[in-house]
Protein backbone atom coordinates (compact mmCIF):
# COMPACT_ATOMS: atom_id res chain seq x y z
CA UNK A 1 0.00 0.00 0.00
CA UNK A 2 1.39 3.34 -0.87
CA UNK A 3 1.04 6.59 0.99
CA UNK A 4 -1.46 8.10 -1.46
CA UNK A 5 -3.85 5.23 -1.04
CA UNK A 6 -3.74 5.19 2.76
CA UNK A 7 -4.20 8.97 2.89
CA UNK A 8 -7.23 8.72 0.62
CA UNK A 9 -8.91 5.95 2.61
CA UNK A 10 -8.26 7.76 5.89
CA UNK A 11 -9.87 10.95 4.60
CA UNK A 12 -12.96 9.08 3.39
CA UNK A 13 -13.43 7.26 6.71
CA UNK A 14 -13.07 10.47 8.70
CA UNK A 15 -15.53 12.17 6.35
CA UNK A 16 -18.17 9.44 6.75
CA UNK A 17 -17.94 9.40 10.55
CA UNK A 18 -18.06 13.17 10.65
CA UNK A 19 -21.08 13.35 8.33
CA UNK A 20 -23.12 10.74 10.20
CA UNK A 21 -22.35 12.45 13.49
CA UNK A 22 -23.41 15.85 12.14
CA UNK A 23 -26.48 14.33 10.54
CA UNK A 24 -27.80 12.81 13.77
CA UNK A 25 -26.98 15.98 15.68
CA UNK A 26 -28.78 18.21 13.21
CA UNK A 27 -31.93 16.11 13.06
CA UNK A 28 -34.19 17.29 15.80
CA UNK A 29 -36.78 14.81 16.98
CA UNK A 30 -40.50 15.47 16.97
CA UNK A 31 -41.95 15.41 20.49
CA UNK A 32 -45.09 16.39 22.29
CA UNK A 33 -44.91 19.14 24.92
CA UNK A 34 -44.82 16.59 27.73
CA UNK A 35 -41.98 14.65 26.13
CA UNK A 36 -40.06 17.84 25.45
CA UNK A 37 -40.54 18.94 29.06
CA UNK A 38 -38.69 15.84 30.26
CA UNK A 39 -36.03 15.88 27.59
CA UNK A 40 -32.71 17.64 27.78
CA UNK A 41 -32.37 17.65 24.00
CA UNK A 42 -33.70 20.19 21.54
CA UNK A 43 -37.13 19.19 20.26
CA UNK A 44 -39.64 19.99 17.54
CA UNK A 45 -43.22 20.37 18.69
CA UNK A 46 -46.06 20.45 16.21
CA UNK A 47 -49.31 22.10 17.09
CA UNK A 48 -51.68 25.01 16.67
CA UNK A 49 -51.46 28.62 17.68
CA UNK A 50 -54.18 29.56 20.17
CA UNK A 51 -55.49 32.72 18.58
CA UNK A 52 -57.69 33.68 21.54
CA UNK A 53 -54.75 34.02 23.91
CA UNK A 54 -52.43 37.04 23.75
CA UNK A 55 -49.52 37.01 21.36
CA UNK A 56 -47.03 39.81 21.35
CA UNK A 57 -43.77 40.98 19.86
CA UNK A 58 -41.33 42.59 22.24
CA UNK A 59 -39.06 44.83 20.17
CA UNK A 60 -36.65 45.45 23.03
CA UNK A 61 -35.94 41.81 23.82
CA UNK A 62 -36.63 40.84 20.20
CA UNK A 63 -38.92 38.00 21.19
CA UNK A 64 -42.35 36.93 20.03
CA UNK A 65 -44.52 35.12 22.53
CA UNK A 66 -47.69 33.14 21.89
CA UNK A 67 -49.63 30.18 23.21
CA UNK A 68 -49.61 26.88 21.45
CA UNK A 69 -51.49 23.62 21.86
CA UNK A 70 -49.85 20.39 20.70
CA UNK A 71 -51.44 17.33 19.09
CA UNK A 72 -52.20 15.87 22.54
CA UNK A 73 -54.11 19.04 23.49
CA UNK A 74 -51.48 20.19 25.97
CA UNK A 75 -50.99 23.92 26.10
CA UNK A 76 -47.84 25.95 26.81
CA UNK A 77 -46.50 29.42 26.26
CA UNK A 78 -43.87 29.62 23.53
CA UNK A 79 -41.31 32.39 23.31
CA UNK A 80 -39.59 32.70 19.98
CA UNK A 81 -36.26 34.47 19.77
CA UNK A 82 -36.95 36.77 16.83
CA UNK A 83 -39.89 38.42 15.18
CA UNK A 84 -43.30 37.01 14.37
CA UNK A 85 -42.82 34.20 11.83
CA UNK A 86 -43.88 34.72 8.24
CA UNK A 87 -47.53 34.02 7.54
CA UNK A 88 -48.24 33.22 11.14
CA UNK A 89 -51.86 34.38 10.95
CA UNK A 90 -52.86 32.08 8.13
CA UNK A 91 -50.83 29.04 9.15
CA UNK A 92 -52.72 25.77 9.40
CA UNK A 93 -50.29 24.53 11.99
CA UNK A 94 -46.96 25.55 13.41
CA UNK A 95 -43.79 23.69 14.35
CA UNK A 96 -41.65 25.14 17.13
CA UNK A 97 -38.03 24.06 17.50
CA UNK A 98 -36.46 24.59 20.88
CA UNK A 99 -36.24 23.63 24.52
CA UNK A 100 -38.13 24.15 27.74
CA UNK A 101 -36.84 26.51 30.39
CA UNK A 102 -39.15 26.12 33.33
CA UNK A 103 -42.68 26.21 32.01
CA UNK A 104 -41.95 28.20 28.92
CA UNK A 105 -40.88 26.65 25.63
CA UNK A 106 -38.08 28.78 24.18
CA UNK A 107 -38.04 28.34 20.41
CA UNK A 108 -35.11 29.19 18.18
CA UNK A 109 -37.29 28.78 15.14
CA UNK A 110 -40.98 28.52 14.36
CA UNK A 111 -42.06 27.11 11.02
CA UNK A 112 -45.49 27.81 9.67
CA UNK A 113 -47.31 25.31 7.52
CA UNK A 114 -49.51 27.19 5.16
CA UNK A 115 -52.45 25.95 3.19
CA UNK A 116 -50.78 24.65 0.05
CA UNK A 117 -50.00 27.61 -2.10
CA UNK A 118 -50.02 26.29 -5.60
CA UNK A 119 -52.60 23.58 -5.41
CA UNK A 120 -55.60 25.04 -7.11
CA UNK A 121 -58.83 24.28 -5.36
CA UNK A 122 -62.41 24.53 -6.53
CA UNK A 123 -62.91 27.61 -4.38
CA UNK A 124 -60.38 29.46 -6.48
CA UNK A 125 -61.90 28.10 -9.63
CA UNK A 126 -65.24 29.65 -8.76
CA UNK A 127 -63.59 33.02 -8.21
CA UNK A 128 -62.24 33.05 -11.75
CA UNK A 129 -65.35 31.98 -13.63
Amino acid sequence: MNLRFILGIAIIIVAIIFASYSFTEANIEYMTFNEALHSSKKAQVKGDWIKEKPSEFDPIKNTFSFYMVDDKNIEYQVILIGAKPNNFEIAESVVAKGKFQGNIFYASNVLTKCPSKYEAGTEELNKTL
Binding site: E25, N27, I28
Partner: peptide, 19 residues
Protein backbone atom coordinates in the same frame (compact mmCIF):
# COMPACT_ATOMS: atom_id res chain seq x y z
CA UNK B 1 -35.59 9.96 8.73
CA UNK B 2 -38.93 8.80 7.37
CA UNK B 3 -37.43 5.41 6.60
CA UNK B 4 -35.46 5.11 9.86
CA UNK B 5 -37.77 6.77 12.38
CA UNK B 6 -41.10 6.86 10.62
CA UNK B 7 -41.35 10.64 10.77
CA UNK B 8 -39.81 13.04 8.28
CA UNK B 9 -37.65 15.84 9.58
CA UNK B 10 -35.23 18.14 7.81
CA UNK B 11 -31.73 18.84 9.05
CA UNK B 12 -30.87 22.14 10.63
CA UNK B 13 -28.96 24.52 8.38
CA UNK B 14 -26.08 24.13 10.78
CA UNK B 15 -25.50 20.62 9.40
CA UNK B 16 -24.51 21.99 6.02
CA UNK B 17 -22.20 24.59 7.50
CA UNK B 18 -20.56 22.17 9.90
CA UNK B 19 -19.89 19.49 7.30
Amino acid sequence: TLMLKGKASAVEINYYIQT
